[in-house]
């Protein structure tokens, strides 16, 4: 009886140990991939494999421009939601007129980068994982390698650069749309003008607040790409494996984004 319990406990520890080793190995793989990608950006030309602009532009369109409509809708919705909740909550204290402060800071510092990150992770991070996973099981990555073309340079760098460029831009767009949508609701509810709301925003928001959100969105860009690539590259077991890793990449990327967001906010506001 006791033997049994000890054996089970040992098995559990064994599994836990293996899982930990795998997680550490995966983290190391991610870090090394990210490092290699940066290395190719700097050293590509010297190694006769320059990073080319055309695939980066294609990725920018795919990641950024194509995401504009849905980002616009979601950012406007979040802005409205903040305005509605803000006014409702502050009404308890009779402080509705102070609502702009909350809306402005939470949109620019938190909600815009977060919603953009989650959306891009779902749209482009998963697509990246699926594409690399399909290429892995179809031997396309091996084919690149034996042609003397670095898969990191050819497949990872373009989406990484495109994300790093487009994420802050999308976040900035989400800032503008969210604040505008919130402004429409606030000015209607509090019978003030949109211009007055705008003036208030300009007084409240410092460059620092925008930078806080944009800096986070750059980190999210790196996270989404790396998570997508690592999951895509680790695919095994055919089409089902691709599906599994694609899902995993979305879950991992969103978790990474939310946790990083909290850590970043904690570090920066101390």
């Amino acid at each position: 009886m006791l033997d049994d319990v000890i054996l089970r406990f040992a098995t559990m520890l064994d599994r836990l140990g293996r899982a930990t080793i795998r997680a550490v190995a995966e983290f190391g793989f991610a870090a090394s991939l990210f490092g290699q990608a940066l290395w190719w950006i700097v050293m590509g030309r010297a190694r006769r494999q320059p990073v080319r602009l055309a695939p980066i532009v294609i990725q920018c369109v795919e990641i950024g421009i194509a995401a504009l409509p849905i980002i616009t809708v979601l950012a406007a919705t979040i802005g409205l939601m903040l305005a509605i909740q803000g006014i409702y909550t502050l009404r308890t204290f009779g402080a509705e007129s102070r609502v702009t402060l909350g809306i402005a800071l939470s949109t620019v510092r938190e909600f815009s980068p977060l919603i953009t990150g989650i959306l891009v992770a779902g749209r482009s991070g998963s697509a990246l994982a699926a594409r690399l996973g399909t290429m892995r099981i179809n031997q396309e990555i091996d084919a690149l390698t034996v042609m003397g073309i670095s898969p990191v340079r050819f497949l990872v760098v373009p989406p990484l650069v495109a994300m790093a460029v487009m994420m802050p831009l999308l976040t900035l767009w989400a800032d503008l749309v969210g604040l505008f949508a919130a402004g429409l609701y606030v000015s209607a509810q509090l019978q003030t003008s949109l211009a007055a709301y705008g003036d208030e925003l300009l007084n409240i928001l410092k460059l620092n607040d925008f930078m806080h959100g944009l800096a986070k969105s750059s980190i999210f860009a790196a996270l989404i790409t790396t998570v997508g690539v690592v999951n895509g590259a680790s695919v095994s077991g055919g089409a089902e494996g691709v599906g599994r890793m694609t899902t995993r990449s979305v879950v991992h990327a969103i978790s990474a984004i939310v946790i990083t967001d909290m850590v970043f906010a904690f570090m920066v506001t101390r």
Binding site: R131, T134, M135, N138, Q139, E140, D142, A143
Partner: peptide
Amino acid sequence: FQSGALFSS
């Protein structure tokens, strides 16, 4: 390669 491994894109 056995599967051809052509780039599908």
